[in-house]
Amino acid sequence: MKLTAGKLWGLRRMADDAGRFKMTAVDQRPPIKNPIAAHYGSQEAPYDDVARFKALLIELLHEQSSAMLLDPHFAIPRGIGHMPPSKGLIVTLEDSVFEETAGGRLSSEIDDWSVAKIKRMGGDAVKVLAWYRPDASDSVNQHQKDFVRRIGEACQRFDIPFLFELLVYPLSSDAHQTKDYVELQGKKADDVLASVEEFAKPDYGVDVFKLESPVNAGDVPGVGNDGWEAVQSVYDEMGRLAGRPWVMLSAGAGKPQFRNILTHAYRAGASGYLAGRAIWLDAFSQFPDWERIREGLGTESVNYMNDLNALTDSSAVPWHAHPVFKDGGARFTPDDASFRHVYGDFA
């Protein structure tokens, strides 16, 4: 796997100086909008409340982050001024409103938003979430594959890293029905692994995977605890199938559970995390008490990130040292005067 100049630079921008990803997700929409709307007893959350919370996340958590993931609806317009330019900027592209069909979920891009616009505004990477179940209908899975492939091709054209998030979800025949952005209870490790295997194919152009735990978060013991070896073997297989740098998402897991997940992921070769709710959900639960939210983010959330970062420093694999880059790791090529002649026109 060779990286073009733009992708290499974007990946470097997302990581810390040692090549480890410590990334905070601020792009969530339903997990923030829905509780606020419920508080007011309204259909929609007031824009100012959602944007204010996201701006607080950026203001108070950027120091612990190597990069932040922002959305174009709320976080970028109201919060990007709080983020120093020394931090990597990842921008989300997928619409949070998916189409639920009898055969499964259909993803789409945010209206009037694109890879080109993310590149043009100075984004360092494009993030996309796609729901996927190997046993969904053929037409649904083909739609999802085409969706991801289309974005991968655009990221290649504009020479910007493609950070791809995969989530399994309940089909109509499953017991645990929910449309919430939470971990599917009773999920099968085989579904997670098969999904990773599919999108690791070169057709999709994924540069970094953002992956969920292949085992329900509450059942992950943490390395060294009872039963950890069996769980570790599943993580090891996920890392093997990913075949490129990857990070873990929290999917609403609690703080202790997510830390346990990271101990397995790092042992399996993960290069860091891209997490949101595990970091800030406790503080957000104080809404609408803004002072208590600020206090919680500035103390409990920061302390938790410091703990995760220490674990990441000691155990995560630097992204540029991933075996996919062969001997010498990820590096700039060609490293001579021919560069300007061989570098493509991506406009």
Rank of each mutant, 00 (worst) to 15 (best):
F158Q: 13
G79W: 08
S86F: 06
D236S: 14
I279N: 01
V115D: 09
K7T: 14
V26K: 00
H341C: 08
R157M: 11
S96M: 03
H39G: 13
N260P: 01
K188V: 02
R149Y: 03
V206K: 04
E212H: 03
P31F: 03
D313K: 07
L56W: 11
Y204H: 07
W9E: 15
Q64Y: 05
S108N: 09
G224S: 04
C155K: 09
K127L: 13
A278K: 01
L274E: 06
V231W: 02
V91N: 05
P318C: 15
G269T: 12
V324I: 09
P84E: 15
D313R: 12
N260Y: 08
S233F: 00
R12S: 10
Y204K: 04
A75G: 08
R13E: 13
D203G: 02
L274Q: 05
P214G: 15
S250A: 15
N225W: 07
G122P: 05
R331A: 14
S271I: 01
L60R: 09
L211D: 10
D16G: 10
L61G: 12
A102T: 10
T4V: 03
D174T: 04
Q257I: 02
F258V: 09
D27L: 09
N34M: 09
S338V: 13
P77T: 11
T312G: 07
P202I: 02
Y47A: 05
